Simulated assay, not measured.
Amino acid sequence: MIKVVLADDEPLTRAGIRAVLGAAPEIVVVAEASDGRGAVDQVQAHRPDVALLDIVMPGMDGLAAAAEIVRTTPGTGVIMLTTFSEDEHIARALGHGAGGFLVKSGDPHELLAGIRAVAGGAAYLSPTVTQRVIRQLGEGGTGRMSRAARAREQVGRLTPREREVLALVGAGLPNAEIGRRLHVAEGTVKVFVSAVLRTLEVHNRVQAAIVAYEAGLVDRS
């Protein structure tokens, strides 16, 4: 069972999201909140698999709540949910340790897929967000080349097995699938992922996936 804490300041939005999640028998909303502070409190009380946070909320916003949840309850994956898709929100959300980013106007199936992915230890960006990130990465010029060189230098610090793990993280696979691909236990994958994040000096799997993309470990087609 995937336990979710849902935080949004609009009751109708929460009701709609709760209805979508209710269609998945393996997902259960264990608590709700109308602001970031409440979300943090509910996460600390229930220790859910996923915290689904609206970005714009009164008082403590979703980004600040995400940062505190990542710091105090690292076993809970964070997904940001918003009507906005501006680059600054994406960058700030990823910088605060979010493992997923979804827009409210997206397909409900994206919401379910994102929760399943983040609960399984993977990162998830909605297709709209992915296109924006990839477009930024694909911009030409010396900035693009310098990022690639930096990524190759970072990847060069990894062991061969860690590079394999990073490539699969970059492909968006959850820990369980990575374990099956590499014929190792899921717990071992978690150890490898932690080592990869530490060596690359990144905060989360999304940032690691970007490094993998820039270093050429992920198919760009």
Rank of each mutant, 00 (worst) to 15 (best):
E32Y: 07
Q44Y: 01
D107P: 03
V193M: 10
R135A: 13
L168G: 04
G170W: 02
L102S: 02
G22A: 12
F101T: 06
R116L: 03
G77S: 08
R147Q: 10
L166I: 01
G100V: 07
A51E: 01
D54W: 06
E86V: 08
G62N: 03
R18D: 00
E88N: 09
A167H: 05
L12D: 14
R220F: 03
F101S: 00
T130Q: 10
V189H: 02
S194F: 09
E68A: 14
E186Y: 05
G106T: 11
G22H: 07
F84Y: 15
V206E: 11
A39F: 12
G95M: 04
A167R: 14
V4M: 01
R198F: 09
V184T: 08
L52P: 01
L6C: 10
I210E: 06
G16E: 03
A148S: 14
L102M: 07
A98C: 11
D9Q: 12
G114Q: 08
V20M: 00
R180N: 10
G75C: 01
Q131N: 12
T82F: 04
G77W: 04
V165T: 05
G140F: 05
V118R: 06
R47E: 00
E10F: 12
G172F: 04
S146I: 13
R116I: 00
T13G: 10
V218L: 11
R152G: 04
L173S: 07
E86C: 02
E88V: 11
G62T: 03
A31N: 09
E201Y: 01
P48I: 02
R150I: 05
T199A: 15
L21G: 07
P127Q: 04
L137K: 06
T128K: 11
A122E: 04
R152V: 08
T76R: 11
A167P: 02
T13W: 04
V103I: 15
G120V: 01
R161Y: 10
G216K: 08
G120K: 05
G179E: 02
I69H: 11
E214W: 09
L200M: 01
E26T: 09
A212M: 09
L137N: 05
L63M: 07
M1W: 04
T142I: 14
D219M: 05
E26Q: 14
